[in-house]
Write a protein that binds this DNA or RNA. Sequence first.
DNA 1: TGGATCTTGCGCACTTTGCTCAAGCCGTAC
DNA 2: GTACGGCTTGAGCAAAGTGCGCAAGATCCA
Lengths: 160, 160
Amino acid sequence: MTPLDALDARLLLVLIDEPRATVLALSQRLGVARNTVQARLARLEQRGALTSLERCVDPAALGYPLTAHITAAVTQRRLAEVADALAEIPEVIEVHGISGNLDLLIRVVARDAEDLYRVAGIILATPGIERTSTALVMRNLVTHRLRPLLDRANQPGQPR
Amino acid sequence: MTPLDALDARLLLVLIDEPRATVLALSQRLGVARNTVQARLARLEQRGALTSLERCVDPAALGYPLTAHITAAVTQRRLAEVADALAEIPEVIEVHGISGNLDLLIRVVARDAEDLYRVAGIILATPGIERTSTALVMRNLVTHRLRPLLDRANQPGQPR
DNA sequence: TGGATCTTGCGCACTTTGCTCAAGCCGTAC
DNA sequence: GTACGGCTTGAGCAAAGTGCGCAAGATCCA
């Protein structure tokens, strides 16, 4: 799979700025033909550069203003089982298997402190989960962003 | 701010399923008038339920297939300064201030192991950062999802 | 009973889309 | 040199969708 080129990166940047922009508007903004933008968009989509819109939904708007990261150790051989169990919990929005011995990083959201406590309890009670450690997100210092990387993909110089 | 109602949730669900769907198609899918969908969409956007498209871009497609979570302790009173410094690093895509004494959770992406090592080095060298601990994401057990919560927002019963 | 809010169906001008086609550009391989 | 594939471009056209306004119900609440 060919990596993104500069035009792809520019396209994404403009798209991020104006998500509602029409293909026509994008092409004018980028200074390329409409057909080109259409082809690029199709290619981006087909190669999966744009994942589900699900990521854009703000949990806070759904009534879940609290986010927490729970790290957990799981007993050997039960990883798949645990992963399935976690997937059943709606408040669990992301689970990563991380380096370290069978460790999980679980991201959860909650309605309030009490709700979080409840969810954490469910997770800890899950068979196969050993210990957990909960870290509540107090503040967003840098909100999820990829713009700097996209900007860099535009620049001709410094490949690193 | 009024929370999302069932129709909003259904709208989001359909939208997630077919991001490219036109307003007309959405209205038919939901069984409501086109004007209603248009109004709802405008309201959702205006209330910020849909955040930047930036979150949908897959770092892997940009050439950064590796993700890692770095937890760091910062020295007192230098939190703002550290946050600014981290924001300058393109590979840093998210920073959370978490509970625990001045702890940060930093999410970074990298081109490869060596690149990650470099980035981790930069972060550790940042003035104000005390200790760091890097956890490489080996596997995605549950990819970011909000569907279960949206589904629940549809259901009449069980408020919890 | 009255008002605020939301939904609905309708209409219309205008824009955008989806698709096709031929032509041009460019780097690579032969 | 020359042929090839891949990408871009401009043009065109029918069909579809958008943006917007408006008046007529629905609810809901006080």
